[in-house]
Amino acid sequence: MVTETHLTLADIPKGSKAEVIGFHDIPLSLRLMELGFAPGAEIKVDCHAPLGCPVCISLDGDYHLTLRKSEAETIEVKLV
């Protein structure tokens, strides 16, 4: 399913917030959901490691995650 903008988490610049819309990688999405990444969740991009990968993000509260750029590319989001 390709939306008009098909923005992924990998495109979100540092400091911006985005909302999860859907996933492109089903097995990975199951893991992400366990980590609290369900559709509708609001994500803030905290930083990119040098060379752009991995990406560090935070969810509600003081909850931080890191994931590789290739993983971020499978998460469809919209800017908030």
Partner: peptide
């Protein structure tokens, strides 16, 4: 074994 990098960064 398929594995993912995604992990929690503890406070």
């Amino acid at each position: 074994e398929r594995s993912y990098f995604v992990m929690e960064l503890p406070t």
